[in-house]
């Protein structure tokens, strides 16, 4: 009885309150934790320079953000989803099923992914995708045969690497970063070491071989980090031999404790990522709900401000923080200005 009473009364209170609630006057954003720092920098500057209130920015991951984005149209749904990967066709369908049809895709720039270890730790100074695949793949090629990953130390497959136990802290599957890490590092290493070919020769279909390539060993040498880069940093702090995966901007803010490794001989920086020399990077996006433009005050102004040269340009505050500015920024600006919806 008390439970029903409680439930009924709270719902009643809620309903009364809902009718009293004023129209929302601030932009609401949710999504990728990689995009969050950039979005909060822009939101802050937006609030300072415009008459609109500062947008509210939540994190929670690309997938969670896009799921909430696709929940429907209306004031109690978010206006913008931040994502560290492009929206998937399944998500576009889910959006359409809930009436979210006008989606404007905005690419804000590129983010590099770096491999770093403790400043005073072993000399992890140069990696190749092959090294990381050999260290972390579930199945690797040893003497021409595919075997369960037998390596326990880095030096066992590359004498140039330190003779310490393999302990890598990689982004968990809830992060958009994981996808980039798998596609641009592990898959590349799988092909380079010849494991991919060996799998194909062993009778696997191409798809199966690709999946097998991306499988990460599960014996504890590779640790999935579901939290943020701060968690990875804490793990590296307590494990001198650990190697962690970070975003370039995070590394640039912690250069006094972290030492970065080169990839294929190229050290990561805004310049090498912009030129494409550094191989591991990914575009960052945000998605605007077209139906909310003109309804939620400041939505379009926020989006335009985000991609303006002052903010997202090569000398703006986002680039200062570690974002690699989009070479085609003008096209992106035009897209936002003309509210060009995604075509698919």
């Amino acid at each position: 009885m008390s439970l029903t009473k409680t439930a009924v009364s709270t719902i009643a209170v809620a309903a009364v309150c809902a009718t009293a609630a004023a129209a929302r006057d601030q932009v609401q954003v949710a999504g990728s934790s990689t995009v969050l720092p950039y979005a909060s920098i822009v939101a802050e500057a937006f609030g300072e320079n415009f008459d609109f209130p500062t947008p509210v920015v939540e994190s929670g991951g690309s997938s969670a953000g896009l799921r909430r984005f696709c929940e429907g149209v209306g004031e109690n749904t978010i206006d913008i989803a931040n994502a560290s990967r492009a929206i998937r066709s399944g998500e576009i369908e889910a959006c359409a099923a809930n009436g979210v049809t006008d989606i404007i895709e905005v690419r804000i720039g590129y983010d590099g992914i770096v491999f770093a270890s403790q400043q005073d730790g072993p000399a992890f100074t140069a990696f190749t995708p092959s090294d990381l695949f050999n260290a972390l793949g579930a199945q690797v090629l040893v003497d021409g045969a595919l075997v369960e990953n037998p390596y326990t130390q880095w030096s066992e497959f590359n004498a140039d690497l330190p003779a310490v136990d393999i302990a890598a802290f990689i982004p968990g599957t809830n992060h958009g970063t994981r996808e980039v890490f798998e596609e641009q590092v592990i898959a590349a290493g799988c092909e380079a070491t010849g494991a991919f070919q060996a799998m194909m020769d062993a009778g696997m279909s191409e798809d199966d071989a690709e999946d097998a390539c991306l499988a990460v060993r599960s014996d504890g040498a590779a640790v999935d980090i579901t939290g943020d880069y701060t968690e990875t940093l804490a793990r590296i702090d307590s494990n001198p031999d650990g190697v962690g995966v970070f975003g370039l901007s995070f590394y640039e803010n912690n250069t006094d404790v972290l030492k970065v490794a080169t990839m294929n001989g190229v050290s990561p920086s805004v310049d090498t990522i912009a030129s494409g020399e550094y191989p591991v990077s990914r575009p960052l996006f945000f998605y605007i709900k077209g139906a909310h433009i003109g309804v939620i005050p400041g939505l379009k102004e926020y989006a335009s401000f985000f991609v303006s040269n002052d903010i997202a340009g090569p000398w703006g505050p986002l680039a200062d923080y570690g974002l690699v500015s989009d070479p085609e920024l003008e096209a992106v600006q035009a897209n936002v200005e003309n509210e060009v919806n995604m075509t698919e």
Partner: peptide, 9 residues
């Protein structure tokens, strides 16, 4: 939020 329509955050 979803049923009663209260604002987020």
């Amino acid at each position: 939020i979803n049923f009663a329509g209260l604002p987020q955050s």
